[in-house]
Design a protein around this nucleic acid. Structure first.
Lengths: 214, 214
DNA sequence: ACCTGAACACCGTTCAAGT
DNA sequence: ACCTGAACACCGTTCAAGT
């Protein structure tokens, strides 16, 4: 009856696959990481089984979302490096960008790294591992450059990059899951520190281990 | 008929609550982090609703399991410190023990730190946050001692401890979810490094930032 | 106080059928 | 090729009823 309704219900939008991914991202923002396919289908305006024309099952959809997340993360990291020239600033800014990505997209971040046992099925979804590797390379690339120019001590690039990855991932993960406030309950009565300040201090300290011995 | 069956079905075992927690741990070991209450009840030998005599809902059961996990983690950390006297060795051994705990109990570890959005409900379950804090104190206690004796530079104990926690948590989390192999796919053809060696190198490097400037 | 069987409202997924 | 409605086997949880 109503033309708007007709338009919306009209025999679908060429790109249901993408609409499902975007809709899922929105649902995750709002309701947390676990959404139901039926809710997603309703939001997008199709029946639940319609989903199976584009994804083998729920895992396949989640993988597509996570891949999308890794691509966004990689972009954030590269943008952060590009914004400054000083190597120390590049290091800090990249770490800050990493943690901020997690804080800005907590449900997505959790999905990428631990959601629904996806990582355990990584052999079934090599695309997921590959997307993760591409993001990792933004980090290891920066590190290789810093070792080459002598800003950092020589070392095994992948090993050192993995160590840094673990550090920023740990910060993001603990902050997202609310583990920072534990510090405010200590005896000394210290104020809760803002996340970016905490990350700044933590990264500067970590960097020491990678600097050239003077 | 069969007396054994009678014995087993006999009007229950005084400690269903504990049996449920232990049974859940076993189920998680086998099938991964997400188990169904109906399966758990079957395994323990009761009906599904019996569970609600001991836990308000599934979340409450999961919290009880996670609390149990944090207690175990705390014990592992303290045992690791107790095994050696040299401060550097204590630092490394504690980190190794942390990561090993995660590798030995992957499903439990994931539940403790990201499972089922439990951390988001931490205000509803203060016991979970408290159990986490107790484990954290094993770490910050060691750090305070090392700063006091001059092995480490002076610093804000909780901040520095949090930084270290993030590092070992990141290592554990990435290793558990299979993110280490990304290194074996790089061009240089490096062999996959054993986890404990990787952790060792990573921790020694991190420690540099905490040492006294010579 | 502790447990059961039956029921409710959900869920992911399948399948025959429609265009 | 893409989508639907009905159905299947699950799920967490509730509730009246039993001891």
């Amino acid at each position: 009856m109503c033309p708007m309704r007709l338009l919306k219900t009209a025999y679908h939008h060429g790109d249901l696959r993408n609409a499902l991914i975007q809709g899922a991202l929105k649902l995750m923002e709002k309701d947390g990481e676990s959404f139901s396919l039926r809710d997603l289908a309703k939001r997008v305006g199709v029946s639940a089984p319609a989903l199976y024309s584009h994804f083998a099952d729920k895992d396949a959809l989640l993988v597509a979302i996570a891949v999308c997340g890794f691509d966004k993360l990689k972009e954030s990291l590269e943008a952060a490096i590009g914004r400054v020239a000083d190597p120390q600033q590049q290091f800090i800014q990249m770490g800050q960008a990493y943690v901020r990505f997690g804080m800005d997209n907590p449900a997505l971040y959790k999905l990428m790294f631990s959601g629904e046992e996806l990582p355990a099925k990584r052999f079934k979804f090599p695309e997921l591992q590959e997307a993760g590797n591409r993001a990792f390379q933004a980090l290891s690339g920066m590190l290789a450059e810093m070792q080459r120019t002598g800003f950092m001590r020589p070392g095994h690039v992948d090993l050192d990059a993995f160590s840094i990855w673990a550090h920023v991932h740990g910060l993001a993960s603990l902050i997202i899951t609310g583990r920072v406030e534990c510090m405010s309950e200590q005896v000394e009565g210290m104020p809760v520190i803002p996340a970016d300040q905490l990350v700044d201090l933590s990264l500067k300290n970590l960097l020491e281990g990678f600097r050239q011995p003077k």
